[in-house]
Every structure is written in structure tokens, then in C-alpha cells.
Simulated assay, not measured.
Amino acid sequence: MSYEPLASDFYSYGSLLTEREQEALAALRAWLERDVRPIVNDHWERAEFPMEVVKPLAELGVLSYAWDETAPFENSAVFRGFVALELARVDASVGTFVGVQNGLAIGSVATAGSDAQRREWIPRLASGEVIGAFGLTEPLSGSDSARGLRTTARREGDTWILNGQKRWIGNATFSDVTIIWAKDEADGQVKGFIVPTSTPGYSATKIQGKVSLRMVQNADITLTDVAVPEELRLQEAHSFRATSAVLRQTRAEVAWSAVGTAIGAYEGAVRYAREREQFGRPIGSHQLIQDLLVRCLGNITASLGMVVRVSEMLDRGEQRDEHSALAKAYATARMRETVGWAREACGGNGIVLDYDVARFFADAEALYSYEGTREMNTLIVGRAITGHAAFA
């Protein structure tokens, strides 16, 4: 299948991909346009996730990119970024599902699991046979998870007893396993656990009333004396550094998703500008509308250049926390501007789902906040600039 560069990829960054990567991206885009775009507004309005997309995502390899145990071919971080972009430009919720399944759940096992755990769990998660979630954020601990984690783990022989609460956990209403991060009562260090959601004492309750990423099934999790065998403790997770290593990889892909969300809103606004007529001609022929669209494209192009570079650095082993943090902070801020301008270009019709822009406008707010707020990512970069931590 031939790859056509997006019109919104104004400087043709897609040309950096190999021919095989371009073909894989073209197949993904064709499926998204054919099978996903027609259903997302209805599912978004009903706040339901379309489970029928899981199997095709697995078959396309989207749930297995990056991991040695399952990758169909050698692929670059830039390619994986473009996958995140393509998903988000059609729907940010589908992109978030993949980010949780592949980046956070599989990523935790790949980064902090033993060889045996990698062999057992990564193929099962990558095939969609097992759905995963990532339990870090808590009701009273979000940005301060490194120090403020309240969920506890107590070892009793070959069993760990987990107690605590988690909040905003994506996929958690239907996940088969959740990676739970808890503080060891013995040494005070954060450790990770693969927790089957059928375990007694584990419960997940869907968070209702969301106005952003409505298709994503976020849940409040309660852990009451949840018994987990030692064999399900992530064997290489000995402190919060293991958690940070997972987030370092996924934070950059959230930046890519932000660019995709901005593109989705921009493309909707361009379609509207070409079709909507006022004063006897398409509104796209008016200077003020063109000004809004050019601002959108400028933000997209600048952000795309940044995320391409940060992914190249990941491929070369050069990416540090401050690099992904700057990309996430910058790209999500520019996304927020862009979806606002796109909505403005659509006038009153920009607040209804019919033209897609409203969905991207709403979903942008969640991407702006998760995987580290702009403020927290700014402090990570600020520490790198000045040599001084200013987190508290």
C-alpha cells in the first residue's frame, strides 16, 4: 500500500521513514479512515470504548511495536511516533488506549520485568489476548507520585499484600491485568506488580461525567488486602527510577499524540473552510479564516519538528528526561492553541460533533494534563537548565 504524506506534514517529515515503515503507516491510516473514523463520534458521545478495534490494532502490529519479543520488524522511534500521530489525528481516545496497552502496560514489563516475565506477558499483551492498565496516579498523589505514593505493599513470605487507591487509570474498567505501583513498607521504595483484576480485594469503578477523552474508560481502583505472588512482582523494579524509565519513553509519544490531535482539529477546520459558504463564497477565501489556519499549521509544523528530533535522540540513546519533558510541555501547549483556533474557524458549528473539531477541542484538555502537567514538565527542564530543583 502506497504512503501519501499528510498535507499537514508541511515540511515532509514522513519522508524520513523507511519504505517499509511508510507502507505499515499507510495500512494503519487506511484502516483508521475506513473502520474507525465513522464510529468514533457516536462512541465518544455515549462514553463507550469500541472494543472491536482491539483485534485489528493487534493484527496491524500496533500493540507490539518497540519490543523485541513481538516486533514484526526493526522500527524506529520516529516511526512509532508517527503511529501515535496517525491514531490521534483520527481519535485521541484510540491513541490513548494504545499508549496505555503498549507504552505503559507492556512498557512496564519490558523495562522492569525479568526475562521470564517478558517472555510470558509481552506476547499476550501485544496480541490483545490480555488487556493491560497502568496504576500509578492516586486520589491524593498525581504530580508528586515519586514521593507521595500512598498505596502500600507488604511482603508475607512469597506473597505481597497491596492496599490503597488509584485514580484516572485508563483501560481499567475492562483490563485483565493492571500494573500497580506501590511503596514497600519495609524499605520505602516503589515497586511494581502485575495484578490480575480478578484478584479478591481488587475493584475498579468507572469515572463518570468526563468532558474529555470520553471513550477512554478511566477508573477509580481500590485495593483491599490484594494478595499478589512474588512471581508477579516486576523483578527489576526496585525504586521509582523504574517507573520513571517507563514514563520517559511514553512521555515523548504523548507529545506525538498532541501533534496528531492538533492535526485532527486542523484538518476538520480546513474541510469546513472549504465547504462552508458565507457572503456568497467559501469562508476559506476570507483573510481572517486563512490567518487562523496558518497559525494552526505553524504550531503543528514547529511541534512536529521537535517530536521528530526527540525520537531520533531516543533511537540514538541520547534522550534524557528533560528532552521528552520539553517536547511534551511544548507540543501540548501548542496543541491547546491550535484546537482553539480550529474551533474558532468553524464558528458555532465548532461546538458540535458533526464536524469532528469539537471532539478534538475537548480531548486536547486531557492530553494537556496527563503524563505530567505543563508545569511539572517545565520544572524537569528548568532543573536541567539551572542545576536547581524547584519542585517544592
Rank of each mutant, 00 (worst) to 15 (best):
D9A: 08
T18C: 03
T18R: 02
E21V: 10
E23L: 12
A27D: 13
L28K: 07
E33V: 08
R34A: 15
I39Q: 12
V40S: 02
P50T: 14
M51H: 15
K55L: 11
S64A: 15
E74C: 03
F79G: 00
R80H: 06
R89Y: 12
V100P: 00
N102S: 07
N102C: 06
N102V: 02
G107N: 04
S108D: 05
A112R: 03
Q117C: 12
R124P: 02
S127E: 14
T137R: 10
P139R: 12
S145P: 00
A146C: 09
R147A: 10
R147P: 00
R147F: 13
T151D: 08
A153S: 08
A153E: 02
E156A: 12
G164I: 00
R167Y: 15
W168F: 14
G170D: 06
W181G: 02
W181Y: 14
A186H: 05
A186V: 03
F193P: 05
T199N: 04
G201S: 04
T205Q: 05
K206R: 12
I207Q: 10
K210A: 07
V211R: 14
I221H: 01
L223Q: 00
T224N: 10
H238L: 12
S239T: 09
F240M: 12
V246E: 10
L247P: 00
V259C: 06
A269N: 06
V270Y: 04
R271D: 15
Y272W: 10
Y272T: 05
R281K: 15
P282N: 06
H286P: 02
Q287Y: 11
L288K: 07
L288D: 11
L292F: 10
R295P: 04
C296E: 05
I300K: 07
G305V: 11
V307H: 00
V310Y: 13
D315N: 08
Q319Y: 06
Q319T: 10
E322I: 06
A325F: 03
A327I: 06
A331V: 08
R334M: 13
M335G: 08
R336V: 04
T338W: 08
V339G: 05
A342V: 01
R343A: 05
E344N: 11
Y355A: 01
V357F: 10
V357K: 04
A362C: 11
D363Y: 02
L367I: 05
L367T: 01
Y370C: 02
T373Y: 14
T378R: 12
L379F: 14
I380S: 05
I380N: 05
